[in-house]
Amino acid sequence: MSIKVERPGLLTSLQDLGRYGFQKYGVIVSGAMDAVSLRIANLLVGNQEGEAALEITLVGPSLTVKEDLFIAITGGDLSPQIDGEPVPLWRPVYVRKGSILSFGACRTGSRAYVAVSGGFAVEEVMNSKSTYLRGGIGGFKGRALKAGDIIQCNKMPKKSEDLFIKLKNKGGFHPFAAADWYVNPASVVNIKNKTEIRVIRGGEFDHFTPASQKQFFEQEFKITPNSDRMGYRIEGRALKAEESFELISEAVSHGTIQVPKDGNPIILLADRQTTGGYPKIAQVITADLPLIAQLKPGEKTRFKEITLEEAEQLYLEQEQKMQQLKMGLQLKKHKE
């Protein structure tokens, strides 16, 4: 089984849950920007939740499906269509051999994920299939997809076959068929809150001037076009740290908000460097990282402070919802 890339889109790369264990060698984590969407896409087609899937950014690719395929599309709504007909998100979908999966306008969010049942047949590099774009390793040939690429897919797991066949029969000569059930992302991620990202204080919060501390939570920040998988540069009234303060380089993580000398914060994301020397004013809570990943340049957001204990609780609740979803899917598989 394989798919052929007709047009690559803006930035389409293979990502899984990231490359851990090598940060001390300067090897960045990479991985999906919106890990929850990636996990759900995989679960819908019967994969392990951490399998690699295509991460699609703002302008989607055009892909020819070479053999019958079983897929799920999650994340932002980039108007996916198969042979010109809209495909629903967040569902298992049978795609008929020869059909073309393409994307249109970016309606909500900015990143979509396409998982195929069985996963993509690429080698793991340092225990991960994620593409490390600058390092040129992992994913498909260590780079974003290009026109003409042919990506092989693995055989689908046995447990997915029944649903696949059911959908295939339902589809008939139609280019695709979607299940009549789906996952609502709002039941796992706090989507309503996307303009109010929750954070906890950063390690150097106290080194910012009192006015800047206040401003950080009161003002609105705009996502600038200078935002990518490494980080989002955001703009508001400039924030100031104490003149004399110097930080010795130390680790940063997914969601760290650091403030360089110019006073405009950077939210560090999937392709962040392992360490940084700018003061950290705040840290986006893990449960809200999917919201950040779906913000696009030009959009505005605010930050709301919560405590570490609240952040931990929100994370644990989100994981519990994922657990329920996994069980629900398990039951579905038995029933199909």
Binding site: Y20, G21, F22, Q23, K24, V29, I248, S249, E250, A251, S253, T274, T275, T286, E312, Y315, L316, E319
Partner: peptide, 21 residues
């Protein structure tokens, strides 16, 4: 335990809160 980053004066330890809990 997930990963760690030793730096000049510190070590940052990454963990999975769910497993720890």
């Amino acid at each position: 335990f997930l990963d760690c980053i030793p730096a000049f004066t510190s070590v940052t330890v990454f963990y999975n809160p769910l497993v720890v809990r």
